[in-house]
Every structure is written in C-alpha cells, then in structure tokens.
Design a protein around this nucleic acid. Structure first.
Lengths: 230, 230
DNA sequence: AATCGTCGGATTGTTGAACAATCCGTGAAA
DNA sequence: TTTCACGGATTGTTCAACAATCCGACGATT
C-alpha cells in the first residue's frame, strides 16, 4: 500500500522514465493499434481514415485520434490532406527509389563501421532465424527474419537515431509491399545473400560486406520496382 | 465509371497539395513559431514549455498547442515527459556522437552517389555564399552557409526522405550548438574544407570527396565534443 | 536535525460538445 | 455538356470540464 517507488523515484530517474513508456498514453495506444492494422494489411494504401469512425470504434475521443494521426503522419504511414482527412500512405512514383536510397545510406554506412561482437552476433542470429523459418516453410517468419537482419545491421552503429529511422523505413516498406510478402518465395531467395553478408561481417571484411549489401539492396530495389507498376 | 475529376485531379494534384501547404493549419504555425524560437536560442535546452502559457501567448487553444508539441516531439526538438510536460530537448551523453553518426551515413552516401550538374552547382553556390559571408565578417551568415553546404550535399541524392532527415538533424544541431555558433571563428576554419570537398565533387572524384567529407565530419564531431562537456 | 509521509496546488491527459471552414457530390440552370 | 449553387458531411479549432498525476511544502516521527 505504501509506495516503495516514491523512495526509488529520485534515484531511478532514467528507469522511471523507461517505466512510464511502458504505460503509454491513450493516443499512443491508438497509434499502436493503427500501426498494427497497417502492418497487417487491414488498412490498405489510399484508404481513408475518418476521425469520428475510429474514435467510436476504439472508444476514444476525436481529439485523441487526432493526436494519434499526428504520430503516424510523422512516420509517413499516413498522409494528411487538409480539410479532407487522413489517408493511408500510397506509394507514388519515385518512392521506391527514395526508400532504397535511405536504406543504402544507413545500412551500408552501418555495416562498414563494423560493430561489437554482441551486435555482430545479433546479425548472425537473424540469419539463423531466417534459415529456421525457411526450413519450417514459415513464409511470414521468413519476412520478419529478413527485417530483423537488416535492423540488426543498422544496430551495429549503435545509434538511437539511425535505429528509429530504420524502423520507420521498415514500417513504410511493410505497408507498401504487403502484397509482395504474400509471394511465397519472395524472401527465400535472399537467404544466401544474408548468409554471405554476415560471413563477411564476421570475418571482419567490412569493405566486402558493404559491397555485398549494396549489391543486394540494388537488386532488391529493382525487384520491388518490377513487382509494382515500375 | 467516368472520372471527370481524375483528369483535373491528377493534373493539379501536386500543385493543389503545394497550395494547401501554403496555408498551414494553426497547429503548424504554432509549431513553426516554436521552431523559430528554438533556433533563435530563445528557448534553451531543458526549458519547460507549459501548454496553457503558450496557448495564451499565441492566442490559440491548448489542444492546438498539443498538436504542435507532437510535431516538435517527432522532430526530437522537444521531449515529452508524461504527466509532467514537454521540455526543450537537452543534449545527453552520446547524443553528439549519435547525431554525427547519422550525418556521416547520409552525407557521405549522398556525395559518393554524385548528382546532377544543377545539384553540384548548388553545392558550389553554398561554398561561395560562405566565402562572401566570411569576407563581410558575417558570422551568422557563415553559419547558415555552412548548413546550406551540407544540406546541398545531401540534396545531391535527390531523396525527399534524406532531405527531411537532414533538415531535422540540422535543426537539432542548431538547438544544441547554439552557444558554439557564437564563437566568432567557429565556422571560418571550415571554409577551406568545404572548398576542397566541392572541388573534388566537381572534378567527379567522388571517392576523394567522400573521404574528405568523412574526415571533416570526424574532426567536427571531435571539436563539438570538446566544446561541450566532453 | 534529518527523514518520511501526507496534503494541496498546479499541470497534464482526455473527454465531450459546439461552431466555423472547407470539401464533395448532387442537381438545377444556362 | 458545362457551369453554378446548394446541402450534407468531415475536418479544424475552440472551450469547458474532470480525473490522474506530479511537485513542493508542511508537519510528524525518530
């Protein structure tokens, strides 16, 4: 009944802040819910999100939905058209190239900087996760393993900012390319690439790892461009 | 179904969107005002921003201020502490390195990709702008010329996303390093570097330009780390 | 005197309602 | 067919209210 956290309060400022994040505001929860629906493909690009409808569905106020929209708009998952409403972001000409330009910049830079053994091990773990998913014919697991792989590469740099940029880019890609992930063998072909890149990384041949990763990203972009209306 | 608006819509879609941006919402204007005050150093890191106070000062509603805060928080210019308020972002240990990690990734990647002659010319223009400011002993102009220079480098890649990332990073740096810019000769020493980088870029020696830029960024980080509490 | 718990004021988080501004589609008029 | 005006619907913004939470001060206990 007495509050033991009161005593710990001043001493554990950082921890307390972290705990607070564990109790997100309603707006954050609404944003999380929408993010989930976006990732699941429940809300397709171009779809309109009406404030009152979502407010009613989730049992929150319109203002709160508005704040959630602001979050998602900042992440480019949603686009605001003034006085018209918010729409699920739609892939426009040049966006594929744009997204891959960002990925090339941060992923290649990260891998060329190398990383601590633990972080390299995380990359390896993602590769193994992909192999396991492939063995189990788990296509969805294969897709997320691939994202873990690239996330782990960026994490090599140990930069909070790069990590959030990457996670936002990946969220965008999940949204845009949801259709493509249904293709049963889409990711499977990338497994050898990941393996090769990881091996070079572990060997300390960062130049080579970077070159391989760059080539991979270029091929991936080409493929995505081909799948979508070019 | 015939779509009469399809013709007009697609033809003027971009222009209409641009026009709407020209009439920002109140929340956007509030955010812009606060951004300005942050850049001017009127609001120092750590300062608290009280919703009701700002709402009253700017003659808008608290909810609108809230939306503006969401924008700024997404840009990392401001930090939200749940139930406690929003505070001007404060530089914490590792943040300098973090920011420079992002800059190394996107600037070096951009310059190594080269760019169209117009974009290269924009880089050159920024260099000349800096020289002019130096000749006029315009320290403030020297600072902004330097930012234009690095912005122009990122713009080489022609990526909307990289551009916004860079502008956010620069905004963060303006906020954090405002004190340093007061140092009269802070930027002046960088002019020869910029010139050299630009020359290599114009000569098409992208490898060299990238290496020079990287070295510059490393030195700059070191210097900023020295100026600030290590 | 120092620490601990409690209380009250202040601020945030969230809601609900209201109204103006704007957009969209429909239908009438030229 | 094209243009124009109207009406419904949705957004943008404000206002007022209340619960939840935090912070500092005050007082009690050792």
């Amino acid at each position: 009944m007495t509050t033991p956290d009161a005593a710990a309060g001043s001493a554990l400022g950082a921890a307390a802040a972290r705990l607070r994040v564990a109790v997100p505001s309603v707006a954050d929860r609404v944003a999380a819910e929408l993010r989930l629906q976006l990732a699941e493909g429940l809300l397709l690009p171009g779809a309109r999100l009406t404030e009152s409808t979502i407010a009613e569905e989730l049992g929150v106020s319109r203002n709160t939905v508005r704040e959630a929209f602001a979050e998602l708009a900042a992440e480019r998952l949603v686009v605001r058209h003034p006085n018209r409403g918010v729409f699920v972001a739609r892939l426009e000409a040049g966006d594929i190239h744009d997204v891959y330009t960002v990925r090339r910049a941060i992923e290649v830079s990260a891998i060329r900087g190398g990383g601590s053994p633990e972080r390299v091990a995380a990359v390896r773990a993602a590769v193994e996760e992909g192999k396991a998913a492939a063995a189990a014919n788990d296509e969805e697991g294969l897709g997320s393993a691939n994202q873990h792989f690239h996330g782990a590469i960026v994490a090599l740099a140990g930069s909070r900012r790069l990590d959030t940029i990457m996670s936002q880019v990946l969220a965008e890609m999940r949204l845009f390319f949801h259709k493509a992930t249904v293709d049963a063998h889409f990711y499977r072909g990338y497994l050898p690439d990941n393996e090769e890149i990881c091996t070079a990384l572990e060997a300390g041949d960062l130049e080579q790892a970077g070159a391989l990763l760059l080539a991979y990203l270029n091929r991936s972009e080409e493929r995505q461009a081909a799948v979508h209306g070019e």
